[in-house]
Design a protein around this nucleic acid. Structure first.
Lengths: 236, 236
DNA sequence: TAGTGGTCTAGACCACTCT
DNA sequence: GAGTGGTCTAGACCACTAC
């Protein structure tokens, strides 16, 4: 099966990377250097690199080169542990940058929460890092009545924590959808990767115990940065 | 942002596809024809097609051409509804091909279930179709004591149904892991796609109410064929 | 057998990053 | 300013599919 040269190259690169990971400090040599080392062209070499990128072994930072991907973050989208908490619990360093705060309608949020199309939401756009690598761009759309002064007090902390502790909401009902995607030009730019980079899209609609809509969010993760884990016991 | 020609091409192709979907009966014209229509080379044209493939709009059947992808299957890996049931419930046609039946050890299964490395399992390998498109290659590893004569009676039906009804097991504890992947040459071949095609890997470890290990399975889905949905209420 | 997609070559230019 | 990755050209051959 692996008669194609780029697939042989893939295996040689995989070996090379495991051997030189420490020496290279996580960054691969340039494409031209690697192509020369294997006596092939950049096109073929890039095909092999793309293969390893698809597997999640390496990734690109836009125009800066190829890097060895760190271990995947374990993430349970059914729990409401805050990002900071579960990242630290895995011995990693979390960081959040707030990119935008505004109030406006958003059709997917309205549809997912069963509200009118022109329903306005408090919108928070943020970028999140694990060990200084930007891995997640996300938008949160909160029903304004559920958190009136949200935009004036928000500074990057856990939104779910705020909703629970400050406004006393019980995030009882959750509908979660996950699909693989190609990152949009905007998402890609915010994560410093090339447009079209593979991503994982997670959307959640949250309602309280009376099925009253509270919040909708859209997460765009780098595909190689996480492993989704769900633990279930008893019920069904 | 979308200054690159292949990104403009992506948009033009996206429009072309929605316009001609019916006329083309789901299959795109040849790469050479499309490249000529847009006065570019196959390399650039393929970059645009790869973009749409990443988004899940189109897909390739190995060496047979590009096809418009059907709607994603909704799939809840936390429920134990059988494949046949939930595919039919969505108005689609399920089909299963059994590829292999054997008994042998499998390290990931042993590790995930907390058994000895050399623990043998009943192994079922099967390919599953939705509307005659092969979308899933999966392996199931069953602890032999839990289903002694499994391999002699198995003909493609729901394994979880068998475990419940014939052997009375209660599939109480489930640990589920999901990661995006590049399909291995074997998985790709079994699904009739090019090696390295993007996939979604779902692994489950199943134990009964006494945390006694029953089964472990590995699913390899075409990345554009499903949307993972989880509905939660009340608990946490 | 004709045509297809899969693979590969040997270049090139540009925008950007790094220093 | 040197070097990098991102993009693009204009070809080519091969294994395979469809007819």
């Amino acid at each position: 099966m692996p008669d194609a040269y780029y697939l042989q190259l893939t295996e040689q690169l995989r070996y090379l990377i495991t051997q030189h990971a420490a020496e290279w400090e996580g960054k691969l040599p340039s494409e031209r250097a690697l192509a020369e080392r294997f006596s092939t062209t950049r096109v073929t070499l890039r095909q092999a690199l793309a293969q390893l990128e698809g597997e999640g072994l390496i990734h690109r930072s836009n125009r800066r080169g190829w890097f060895i991907s760190p271990a995947r973050l374990m993430y349970d989208p059914t729990r409401d542990a805050g990002f900071n908490d579960y990242v630290r619990a895995q011995g990693r360093q979390p960081r959040t940058a707030v990119l935008k705060l505004e109030t406006r309608p958003h059709l997917p949020a309205a549809r997912a929460l069963g509200l009118a199309d022109n329903q306005p939401f408090h919108h928070i756009r943020r970028r999140r890092y694990v060990d200084d690598r930007a891995v997640l761009a996300e938008s949160l759309w909160v029903v304004p009545e559920c958190a009136p002064e949200l935009l004036t007090i928000y500074t990057g902390q856990s939104l779910w924590g705020l909703l629970r502790e400050r406004w006393g909401h019980h995030l009882a009902n959750r509908s979660i959808h996950m699909v693989s995607e190609a990152l949009s030009p905007m998402d890609a730019e915010e994560l410093f990767v090339a447009p079209g980079t593979a991503g994982l899209n997670i959307c959640r609609a949250i309602l309280d115990e009376q099925r009253c809509p509270i919040e909708y969010d859209e997460e765009h993760w780098l595909h190689d940065s996480l492993c989704i884990c769900v633990e279930l016991s008893g019920q069904q």
